[in-house]
Design a binder for these strands. Structure first.
Lengths: 139, 139
DNA sequence: TTGAATGCAAAAAATTTGCATATTG
DNA sequence: CAATATGCAAATTTTTTGCATTCAA
């Protein structure tokens, strides 16, 4: 909480009520598109925020690593709080279902990337596409 | 080649010169956004194709598993031929650089997903975000 | 006080859709 | 021939930008 303000301030940024509302919305939703965030923010009785504010807030928060995003589907990016990111998304190309698995499953993979390229993967941003148990695969 | 036509026909679809040009463009580019495909298709001296045709061609080809896409950056999806997908993309959140590593690195990870959920991951569609060796990471 | 953020409105992008017409198989 | 695709133009959707004004620190 106050930590939020601290991180922002440490980077010459400010904790505005709008940004707080965006963070709260993400906390409630788990993960959501900018559009969904806008709807949630406006839904709590408060006045809706203009799209530009939502986008700029998400961008600012992401820059500091407080928020991250993945692409679960074709269009719209899906944002979530860094703290909420405790799972990897499995997106079925057949039925579009989204499943989640613990990040631990990718442990070796991540370690391998670091070893091979010095790349520190943020698996919490990851969406893996493929075919779920019920779907046939490309036909 | 003829295989392309065969797969399309087997699904009640047709191999039109436009679709062939889109496939050729992807083959030349490796991977590209719909916009880049349009530019490449138009660049070879041939007439440019309307955006809708490009989108519809990519959609049709993707449905059959002949083409796939990833999200290397925030916006635009990046398409590539199924055959070209022999690597995983590492996208640096710091400098936006895109590196590639062999899919083999994810072997165990993929196997784990299948074991845990019966999910057959198509790693060729995967983009892993994180921080490259030269970039500091979230600050 | 003072630079960072917001609101608004307008501009850009990026996709999608309707439909008459042209084409493939 | 008959059903699938294309071309075009218009409509959507999504995201970005400019700027005067407000507000957090």
């Amino acid at each position: 909480m106050t930590d939020l303000a601290a991180v922002l301030r440490a980077n010459g940024m400010r904790l505005t009520p709008q940004r707080r509302r965006v963070v709260d919305a993400l906390a409630r939703l788990g993960h959501a598109t900018p559009d969904a965030v806008a709807a949630e923010v406006g839904g709590d009785g408060g006045a809706a925020l203009p799209a530009s504010t939502i986008y700029r807030a998400l961008e600012a928060l992401e820059e500091l690593g407080l928020v991250a995003h993945t692409h679960l589907d074709h269009r719209a990016p899906t944002f979530h709080l860094a703290g909420h990111a405790d799972h990897i998304h499995l997106v079925c190309l057949g039925c579009r279902a989204v499943d989640e698995v613990p990040v631990a499953l990718a442990g070796e993979f991540v370690a391998g990337l670091t070893a091979a390229r010095g790349f520190r993967a943020d698996v919490t941003h990851m969406a893996v596409h493929g075919w779920c148990a019920s779907c046939g695969g490309p036909r």
